[in-house]
Design a binder for these strands. Structure first.
Length: 213
DNA sequence: AGAGTGATCATG
DNA sequence: ATGATCACTCTC
């Protein structure tokens, strides 16, 4: 046994639950990326739930199943990474059983391990905003955190319960209480009609690491 | 408020 | 094949 504290990896059963429940329960858990032998990690502070075939904002709306989004159809605990705007990657945690194409977009982290490597990754990509030298802006957006943790399509479809490259460790046994979680409309989905107004974005109230106030 | 950037997807 | 779109970020 190691003398250091070891945190349990979240088990399959965590991910098989209702996607909104998973989105709330992921707050406060630790996302770990092992990259070039180093741990890059951050505490999840902001998420969004995407509800599948009926959700006009989801990539799987209407039952769409394409080369890009096929990972969303996998079993809960799988990773879905997509590329957009010609330059950005975003990562999602798939929830519920296979063939139920729902997922949780990870929108922001509080960086806690490998911060200097994260900064290097963010700087390497063209210009880095001066404000991004601040710890609070290093992982304060879905594409920013993927850049910082070196997450791209190579990781699409991996199983978070077994992968050695990326996984989620349990820091909290219980989800935060309702009064500590803000519930807002999702970002960037104005096109989604009635679904644009649904309160499917979750973040820790008052947390300085979220993507926007 | 607008540019950047190219994969992706529905259409034909 | 083609063109519109895009679960974003940065700078103006």
């Amino acid at each position: 046994m190691s003398a250091t504290v070891s945190h349990d990896r979240l088990p399959r059963s965590f991910y098989l639950r209702d996607v909104v429940r998973v989105a709330r329960s992921l707050l406060g858990q630790k996302l770990v990326r092992v990259h070039q032998g180093r741990r890059l990690a951050g505490v999840i502070v902001e998420t969004e739930a995407y509800l599948g075939v009926e959700d006009l904002a989801a990539h799987t709306v209407g039952g769409r199943r394409t080369a890009r989004n096929q990972s969303m159809w996998k079993v809960g605990g799988s990773l879905y990474v997509y590329f957009t705007y010609g330059m950005h990657h975003c990562m999602n945690v798939v929830a519920q059983p296979a063939e139920q194409p729902v997922a949780v977009l990870i929108r922001a982290l509080e960086p806690v391990e490998g911060v200097e490597a994260m900064r290097a990754h963010r700087s390497a990509r063209g210009k880095i905003a001066k404000k991004n030298r601040l710890l609070t802006d290093l992982c304060s957006g879905p594409a920013k955190l993927c850049q910082a943790l070196a997450i791209d399509r190579q990781l699409d479809g991996v199983d978070l319960t077994t992968s050695n490259q990326i996984f989620i460790e349990r820091l909290r046994c219980r989800a935060f209480s309702r009064d500590r979680i803000a519930q807002r409309p999702r970002v960037g989905v104005a096109y989604a009609g009635a679904w644009a107004d649904r309160l499917l974005r979750f973040y820790l109230k008052g947390n300085p690491y979220i993507s926007r106030p």
